[in-house]
Simulated assay, not measured.
Amino acid sequence: MHTMWKGTISFGLVNIPVKMHAATENKDVKLRQLHKECKSPVKYEKVCPVCEQELKEEDIVKAYEYAKNKFVILDEEDLKAIKKEQGDKAVEIVDFVKLEEIDPIYFEKSYYLSPNEGGSKAYSLLRKALEETGKIGIAKMMIRSKEQLAVIRVYKNALVVETIHYPDEVRSVQDVPNVPEATEIGTKELDTAKMLIEQLTAAFEPEKYKDDYRTSLLDLIEEKKNTEQVATAKDKAVPNNVTNLMDALQASLDRAKKEKPKPKPANPKRKTKTAVKKKATS
């Protein structure tokens, strides 16, 4: 499993060297966009809309738009300095709370933690302490240039980091439009709804839930592939050097003909000295 982060998690005077691994993966079926005519993949290029020029990475800088079309340019050196300052800090567990105190709306992404060299005993200590107290740790850590609020908890036999949103990242429920106020509900209707919920209540078994859309899409792709309903992108035309050379030679010849000075026409009225002498002799 790929290691995406290495660091130290501490609580009190206990330091645990750990490695972090992504606990989930995106299994969305990615579809490409093709040119309908030649079936070639469509490219998306970075182009300046004012200069109408295609941009390279070295032509692009990062900035913060603090007002309409007003930007503060941020140098890479400044960003690296802040990142290093925060990244060098150990991940410190600052509080321990109960998992049920955190609403699921705060949860973002999960990562597995494994002990790094020399950290197995401290790793096991934290895991055992969390299990027996029923608590989870609240910590801050840097992931991909962003300071994350996170919880550290036990999942089966491993420690897990769950990144969670900061309170100001969760939008206020008061901003949700058309949410009805408390409405008078009939006793019979409520009892029927509760009875239905009870009948559909079951133990959570994640294995029984499947992504039906993804399965159907993959089946459709396989069916079309097996029946040869496929398209092959055309190769980009490679310049023919011979043709280009002949074109260049012909163009040069045509230009030379245009630029070559034309010979001056002979003047019939002008006679040479020899012709004049012959006439005088006769």
Rank of each mutant, 00 (worst) to 15 (best):
M4A: 06
E85G: 06
Y44F: 12
F71T: 11
E259S: 10
A256M: 10
T232F: 15
K84D: 15
L126G: 07
K98L: 10
P263T: 10
R144C: 06
Y66P: 05
H21M: 05
D211H: 05
K128F: 03
E37D: 12
M246I: 15
I152Y: 00
G137I: 05
P49V: 03
E228K: 15
L245Y: 11
E45C: 10
D254R: 04
Y106T: 08
A275C: 01
R127S: 08
T24G: 02
L253N: 13
M1V: 12
V14I: 13
A63R: 04
T183S: 09
D78G: 08
L74F: 13
A63W: 04
M20P: 00
K27A: 08
K279E: 15
R270E: 15
E100T: 07
G118M: 02
D59S: 08
V47N: 06
K19L: 05
L99C: 05
E85I: 12
M142Q: 09
P177M: 03
G12W: 02
K135P: 00
L126K: 02
E259T: 14
K128M: 12
Q199P: 00
L196T: 15
V97T: 14
E54K: 11
S216Y: 02
K156P: 02
V170R: 01
E85R: 07
K210H: 12
K194D: 14
Y111S: 07
N226V: 13
E54W: 00
K83M: 09
P41A: 11
T215Q: 07
F107L: 14
D28F: 00
Y111F: 13
A251W: 02
E25Q: 10
P261L: 03
C51R: 06
H21V: 07
S110G: 12
E228I: 08
I9P: 01
P268K: 02
A150C: 15
T215H: 02
V14C: 01
P167C: 04
K278S: 12
K258H: 09
V50K: 05
M246N: 08
D88Y: 01
R32Y: 07
G186N: 06
K43G: 12
E207V: 09
V72S: 06
E198D: 15
Q174V: 14
L200H: 13
T187E: 14
E147H: 00
V154P: 03
W5C: 11
A81L: 14
